[in-house]
Design a protein around this nucleic acid. Structure first.
Lengths: 333, 333
DNA sequence: AATAGATCTGAAAACGGTTTCAATCGCTTT
DNA sequence: AAAGCGATTGAAACCGTTTTCAGATCTATT
């Protein structure tokens, strides 16, 4: 490509010094209107796009915030990312995304790389990093904000209460008269999955329903795992009248398996999902599920990093998922 | 944060010059093993992360490729993005994403910003920019690669053949004995939507089936629009035995509307989607749809930019979507 | 033993901006 | 008319690397 135009070229064309050009571009100091106009004209004429690298190097600010998210491509984390993008819109800061893939090694690499890119702030969404590691990081790193529940880092956590979500979903089923409720969870080491399971147990306990491991199946948040789980559940012979799936994708798989076994939803088996994925409203029947304010959360997180970058202390904030009642739950008579 | 450690700090600690440190870090020139070891030790001890800005500024290479995609959050474009990420993995280049949102103003802004970030290459996926604008861009910009069909820019196009896709889907329906096939499309100005419609017409013509506008509905690629389209279609009284929806999301909406009107799929109405979204395999019944090799395409596109950055000419490449037969199409007897 | 390469190495010049500092200018104030 | 002030301005330093260039040290040849 042709050599990019620099501040210097503009200075020459407009007949001023490069300092003045810089001032016009950043509006840091008043310059004579006439000269300013000349500079702007020159800039337009030459199609000037300031070199961000030089800019950041000189100013020490990168105007970027690094976002480490998990499972890019999954509805929940994508929605958060959208929220972050929206929250950063118009603030002059741009996000740089990195996928932690729920792997603390990948995560550490990403942080390294973000560090190299001199992100002004870092947003950690979910992930496997242990509290102690995080503490260490918080010391050396710019300004970290965490979208995840972490007891050891009380301040600066923004998260959605997964145990409450699991509780609410299960309670909804119980209120419709169900007592034999199966739970198809996520990987057992996954914090979201663990929390939702905890919520499920809490609801059972509160309603004096005996908890049995025979009704909890391990999935991996995929439709295929939901499908498989229903097969093994059915084969086990354990009775159940409802299923709470740890996410909507799992619920889809479960629903298909049920259909293949001639079981109707909701007449024979009630089904509740988690995530309120866009497709859920159009399932047959439309799926009752827990809505997570992911977009809102992303925006809140973005706002929080921004505050933190400006040196303000930020407050923790927890979001509560809401039940979206549709047609996949029937009353057990 | 504490001032980041620089190459200079390491030089001092290791007792060498910063040039040497740079050489060790980049392996550009052999240095005495002993000194190299000292440098590495020092770097580790100080937790050194090279400042990418300084690096890029000095070298003139940013080691990034800007990718302008459309509709972040939609399955197809997300899958492409994943492919691009995969294709860039391990090459030393990182992607910077910007969402063009199918709006040429946004698109131009994004290109501007990417220009400022001195992306070494630019990948344009879809979008509204006109051929002439693109030509202009190709002149001034680094190395642009286009994932989209553009007759005016013959070289360097990577795309999937949407008219062939539309043709194949419609043909599948025709082969199953359907002649009254409704088409629920996308916005009429959307190139993908237009192409799929063209494919639909082509299949009809080839089979000597009269084309009628009464059977083509305009949607916007959302489930809600598919839902609405089926309502208006049914109200119109126009007969039909099959629906080809321009994407899977639309098909989901259509399928629910059909169900609400007591129409069974596929016994009463056959349904074909487009995209092979992950959820489609788990619909009731599993949805027959056109699979687009989005991930592969993303990888191919990434490979292409890389080649282009290295100054090699790249060849255009067109991908053909494949039919994924599932259970939403029945033979019309 | 002298010389030509071949290896290493450090000094210094970019890279393209921002920012500090001091100087100039035109007015207003005494 | 001299002094003081605020508004503008340019020169120069600096940000942390890479990269060129030339010098220095070794090794191998004659």
């Amino acid at each position: 490509m042709a050599k990019a135009t620099t501040i210097q070229d503009i200075a020459k064309l407009a007949g001023v010094s490069k300092s003045t050009v810089s001032r016009v571009m950043n509006k840091t100091t008043a310059v004579h209107p006439e000269k300013a106009a000349a500079v702007i004209r020159a800039a337009e004429q030459l199609g000037f796009a300031p070199n961000q690298f030089a800019r950041s190097l000189a100013s020490g600010r990168s105007m970027t915030v690094g976002v480490i998210t998990q499972n890019l491509g999954s509805p929940f984390y994508d929605a958060i990312a959208q929220g972050v993008i929206a929250g950063l819109q118009g603030t002059g800061y741009s996000p740089i995304f990195a996928d932690g893939r729920w792997d603390h090694v990948v995560e550490e690499d990403s942080i390294r790389s973000l560090q190299g890119r001199r992100a002004d702030g870092i947003l950690l969404i979910g992930g496997q990093l242990r509290g102690t590691d995080l503490k260490a990081l918080c010391g050396t790193l710019p300004r970290v904000t965490i979208a995840r529940h972490l007891p050891s880092v009380q301040h600066c956590c923004i998260y959605v209460d997964n145990v409450q979500g699991g509780f609410l979903a299960t309670q909804h089923l119980i209120r419709h008269g169900h007592t034999k409720i199966a739970f198809i969870g996520g990987p057992h080491h996954h914090s979201d999955a663990k929390d939702r399971l905890a919520g499920y147990r809490k609801a059972l306990t509160q309603a004096n329903i005996r908890f049995t491991t025979k009704l909890v199946l391990e999935g991996n948040f995929s439709s295929a795992s939901g499908h498989a789980a229903v097969h093994t559940l059915l084969k086990s012979g354990e009775e159940f009248t409802a299923i709470f799936a740890a996410n909507d994708a799992t619920a889809y798989g479960a629903r298909l398996a049920l259909d293949q076994h001639g079981l109707r939803v909701p007449q024979d088996v009630s089904l509740v999902g988690y995530d309120n994925q866009a497709e859920s409203a159009f399932m047959i029947p439309p799926l009752t599920t827990m809505h997570q304010p992911a977009h809102q959360m992303g925006q809140a997180a973005a706002a929080a990093v921004l505050e933190k970058i400006q040196g303000q202390p930020i407050k923790s904030r927890v979001f509560i998922p809401e039940l979206r009642c549709r047609e996949s739950v029937a009353t057990r008579t």
